[in-house]
């Protein structure tokens, strides 16, 4: 388990008050609000979430710098994958459509901008398509592979490299969009809509980076050591 600022005996409410950005992680673990004074452990147990996995992920997300030492030991991979799958749903079904709707509003609010609408949307939709195909691949190929490993199945020809190294490309398109809006978009006067959109985009970008890092630094090392233990057991 990854030790850090937050521990299982603390009240869930206090942790969120201390670091509100963790709310998104809490919801992706499927923990509903209305915590009363319950501790992290109590809330997790009431909803069938593995406490150590939860604590590891929030400590990991709360730190800017990553400690790699045994952070993944004791992680429950099924629980972690549930968290990641919910993350995919959050981005694809909720946040990115929400940003798209705001993008349309912000563009149409500006008379000159209305002309660019289609080009902007094409760019945005291409980005979403890339995120979608990456996440769908993980949902359909990579995660089932890991869940199979948990049952002791290790299909020949597959290993942890089923996780593609495509995270950088996804981040890159998000940066393009951010740069266009911050550096080059001709906005005039009141740009609350545009600012609000941009804050959403930046927040979503940060969330996506965090999500990808959970995969790179927690999931993948944990899968590797699981593979190793299966190989060793067969010897």
């Amino acid at each position: 388990m990854l030790q850090g600022k937050y521990a299982a005996y603390q009240r869930m409410n206090d942790i969120i008050a201390d670091n509100p950005t963790l709310l998104l992680a809490v919801s992706r673990f499927g923990l509903p609000l209305g915590f009363h004074n319950r501790t992290v452990r109590e809330v997790c147990e009431a909803h069938g979430v593995d406490t150590d996995t939860f604590v590891t992920v929030i400590n990991f997300l709360a730190e800017r710098d990553y400690g790699l030492d045994n952070g993944h030991a004791g992680l429950r991979l099924d629980c972690l994958i549930g968290f990641l799958r919910n993350g995919h749903r959050y981005f694809l079904d909720f946040k990115l459509p929400d940003i798209r709707a705001k993008l349309v509003r912000a563009i149409e609010a500006n008379e000159a901008g209305a002309a660019y609408r289609d080009v902007f949307l094409r760019f945005f939709d291409e980005y979403v398509e890339e995120v979608d195909s990456h996440m769908r691949y993980e949902d359909e190929v990579a995660f089932p592979y890991v869940l199979g490993l948990l049952q002791g199945h290790k299909p020949a020809g597959y290993d942890v490299h089923v996780f593609e190294e495509r995270h950088n490309q996804i981040d890159q398109k998000m940066l393009d969009l951010k740069n266009i809006l911050i550096k080059y978009y001709p906005s005039e006067g009141n740009s609350f809509l545009l600012t609000d959109l941009l804050i959403d985009i930046l927040g979503c970008g940060a969330e996506l980076t965090g999500h990808n890092r959970v995969e790179d630094y927690l999931l993948i090392p944990a899968v590797e050591s699981l593979e190793q233990s299966i190989i060793n057991a067969k010897r």
Partner: peptide, 17 residues
């Protein structure tokens, strides 16, 4: 220079400018 790498991103840039 522009810090925009995708072709569709460059399209938006060229149009806006």
């Amino acid at each position: 220079k522009l810090e925009i790498h995708s072709t569709s991103g460059l399209t938006v840039y060229a149009l806006v400018n």
